[in-house]
């Protein structure tokens, strides 16, 4: 059985035409899309304005929702350790629309993030 693909894109708004929000932990919205059917759901990032640990909270959401790949601009060390421990692939895209990011994902042209690329909060 093939595992269902769930790609999450950090976004400025709740739809596929929205721009990517480049900061994982403190992005405004998460858009979770099926890259084949382009069906999607979106929800606000409740932790975007919290005092600390936003990356941990965001990563926990990805894990709880069974996201298989994350497309974003920057990920801090705490979130990165959680995502990599859970085997969530992290791919880089800091600009353009959510739909463009999903297309780029399908063609395999997104660069994989191998290490945290934001200082985050310790």
């Amino acid at each position: 059985m093939v595992k269902e693909m769930k790609v999450c894109i950090t976004s400025m708004s709740d739809n596929l035409e929205a721009s990517i929000d480049p900061h994982f932990g403190r992005c405004r919205y998460f858009v979770i899309a099926d890259p084949d059917s382009m069906e999607f759901e979106s929800f606000e990032n409740a932790g975007s304005s919290g005092p600390g640990g936003a990356g941990v909270q965001a990563a926990q959401q990805m894990i709880n929702r069974g996201v298989t790949a994350l497309i974003t601009g920057s990920v801090g060390p705490n979130a990165f350790s959680l995502l990599s421990a859970e085997g969530v692939e992290v791919l880089m895209a800091a600009e353009g629309s959510v739909a463009e990011a999903v297309s780029a994902y399908r063609t395999g042209s997104l660069k994989k993030l191998e290490a945290p690329n934001s200082p985050g909060k310790k």
């Binding site: 932790g47 919290g50 005092p51 600390g52 640990g53 936003a54 941990v56 909270q57 990563a59 926990q60 894990i63 705490n78 350790s81 959680l82 421990a85 859970e86 909060k121 310790k122």
Partner: peptide, 18 residues
Amino acid sequence: QYNALAVLSSGPMLFPQL
């Protein structure tokens, strides 16, 4: 409230500095 804990499918993970 400080997101110092997370739970993976393999078990818990702690962030002591938070």
